[in-house]
Amino acid sequence: MSVDERDPLTGHRTTGHEWNGITELNTRVPRAVWWAIGLTHAWAVLMWFLLPSWPLVTTYTKGLLGVDQRQLVAGQLAAAARDHDQWMSRIASEDLPTIRGDKELMATVAEVAPALWGDNCQACHGRVATGGPGFPDLVDKSWLWGGDDDAVLETIRVGVNSAHPDTRTSQMLAFGAGGMLTRDEIRTVATYVQSLSGLATPDDATRQAGAQLFADNCASCHGDDGTGDTSLGAPNLTDAFWLYGSDSETLFRTIYGGRHGWMPTWESRLSEAQRKILALYVLNVLPEKQ
C-alpha cells in the first residue's frame, strides 16, 4: 500500500505500512481524548497539592489539607468511644438487676448484643443459643455452671477448662478406656441413666444393677439422684436436655471415653461491659424473643 492511499470509508490516509494485510489509518487523536487526558491529569495534580503525595529525600510533601490517615483513624476511634461511653459506662458500673430495670438501657443491650454474639459466641452456641452436640443450649434453663447472674458472668469471664488461672474445670472420666467399667457395665449404666428421664424402661434386674453402678461411679459428681451439680459442671441427667446426646450409642461413647468440654476465657478479649451485655442477652433478651 502506498503512503497516499485513502480509506474509502473514512477518507483518512493510511500510514503506508502493511502487516499481513493489516493497515493503519493516520487519523488524528480525537479531541475528546485530549480533553479527558487534561481532566484526569488536572485532578491528579490537584490531589498532589491537597494530599500527602511525593517523596522527598527524608520526608514527603504533606499536602495542603494536612490529612494524615493515622490521625484520622485515631480521631474516629476517639469519637466512637465518646458515643459509646454514654451507655457503656453505665453498663460497666451498674449491676445486672439495675440494668434490667432500665428499659432504655435494655433496649441498647438488645441492639448491641446480636453482633457481639454473632462474632464471639455463635460459632459454638449457634445463632439463637440453642447449641449443638457438645455445645450447651443456653436457653433451655438447664445450666451446667448455674444460671444466676453471677454464675453466668463468671463463666463468660473465665471460661471452662481454659487458659485462665481461675478457669472453671470439669472433666468426665473415661470409664471404659480407663478400665473402670466393662462394656456391659457401661451399657447397663447407660440404660439406667436413660431411665432417669423416662427414655428407657429396663427390667428390674438391669435397673438395680445400673443403680448400683451409678451410685459407685457417677453419683459423686452427678448426685445420688442424677440431678447434677453446677459447682462441678456436672449435668443434670434427669431432664430432657442433653449436651452430647441421649441415644444409647452416644451415651456409650460418653461413658467409655469421657468428656472434656472447653470454652475460652473472654476476659482478655471482651470488656466487662461487653460481657454483661452478653449475659443479659442470654438471660433476658433471647428468652423473651422465643
Binding site: T14, T15, G21, I22, T23, E24, R28
Partner: peptide, 15 residues
C-alpha cells in the same frame, strides 16, 4: 485481521 479494516488511528495506538 478478522474485520479486514485498517486500525482506526496509528496515533491513538502510540498514545
Amino acid at each position: 485481521k478478522r474485520a479486514a479494516r485498517p486500525i482506526y488511528s496509528y496515533r491513538l495506538s502510540i498514545l
